[in-house]
Design a protein around this nucleic acid. Sequence first.
DNA 1: GGCTACTCATGCGG
DNA 2: CCCGCATGAGTAGC
Length: 494
Amino acid sequence: MRFDALRRKVGQLEDVKDSQHNGNAKRADLKASAILMSNSIRTNTKKRTGHVPGVEIGDIFFFRMEMCLVGLHAQSMAGIDYLIVRGDREEEPLATSIVSSGYYDNAADDTDILIYSGHGEASDQKLVRGNLALERSLQKGNEVRVIRGLKDANSPTTKIYVYDGLYTIQESWVEKAKTGCNIFKYKIVRMSGQPGAFSVWKSVAQWKESVSSRVGLILHDLTLAAETIPVALVNDVDGERGPTCFTYLASVRYSKSFKLSHQTSFGCNCRNACQSGDENCACMTKNGGQTPYIGNGVLVCRKPLVYECGPTCPCTANCKNRVSQTGLKVHLEVFKTKDRGWGLRSWDPIRAGTFICIYAGEATNKAISGEVGDSGDYVFDTTRVYDSFRWNCEPGNEEYDMPYPLVISAKNVGNVARFMNHSCEPNTFWQPVVYENNSETYLNVAFFAMRHIPPMTELTYDYGTPRADVPGGSNGHGRMRCLCGSTRCKGYFV
DNA sequence: GGCTACTCATGCGG
DNA sequence: CCCGCATGAGTAGC
């Protein structure tokens, strides 16, 4: 419950941040947090040592302010956070959490040990504030949360913070820094029995360097270069050598009968990259005047339909409105799960709203005539996007004309999306996207991250409930016992 | 309660 | 791509 509340808040943060982005805002993160702070939309405001409810080991954050809002680390800039313990005679500080930005001593191979420097740079460090708190925590032996700050390999200017669980402080000493000043050093050691977080990142970095170091590797690239990024096939669970045979296809193959007669032509005439708010851009106008995407393929909010610029739109190739047509951007792997067949997960961290993949396969609209229902078909009920769930949805904007569901069969041909399993508490969702090519309108289903997804976390979506009035709406699978393990599990899925 | 110092943030421009 | 710079905001401590 509380976890969900946290997620809503982070979602709100993202939402506000995004709307700020659409304007002329710099530092949208700070504006978003200011809005949330002033409205008391935050959790765990009382400082505590040990875990923070709602935050799990491995959770990732893209801004320091995100960690302030959830109470993981209340300092907006400082690396050491602490609380004041009122003892019998005097008050003393006790460290609660530290952010290791990785500027110092990151060479250490052991991911369970952190050598941390005290704060203060210009002169000899003094044993006050955070430094004193670390010293007291060393004496008391209390648990200290550690957040690892890492460079994002895909975007060198941004930083990602990983909650690496609880550590205790083992030693402290004074050292001469390069500047000639004395600085405090602390040896901080990870408590045993915790699931991997930072160590997972280290492993992934190793696999990227040399894919053969990946244990259980079956195929380096199951797409056979159909995608621009290789997708590894991995099984470190049992002896199965791969999923049943299929042909990899990166895009949707439309059957001859498939026609979106209800969509009128809409392409733009822009000569540059399309701009949010440009009234002359037909694609933007269709999207309600604002770009549906910000940054690097990040969807601002879920909509009944997103109108992308298509291959025949004259705008430049770097137009930000072609997200779902540009292929995979995150480094994925297909892996054998313990009890749910093959699944999909990512080597890269995924920011909330990020485009992951489309659902490729053979598209028909034959559901109307009741001829589908084969195993491997997936019915995307594009007529009821909002019924399955909402994700930062824009209210209103119901101008939408899609009288039948989209049926895509990935039984014989398909892409990575065919491996995504169901969850009642999913971390991705699907979004209908259309674009135009030679005055023909094409409908796609694209998957986006619902929240920040740490590396090596299985990607899932909600398969939804069948429509009684749509033949084939049972998805051909019938009722399946759900193994998603969520506390909100509905027990079965279609 | 107000004020200020402190701080391993950020994004942007050069 | 790396650096410097302006701007920044929560918290502790007075």
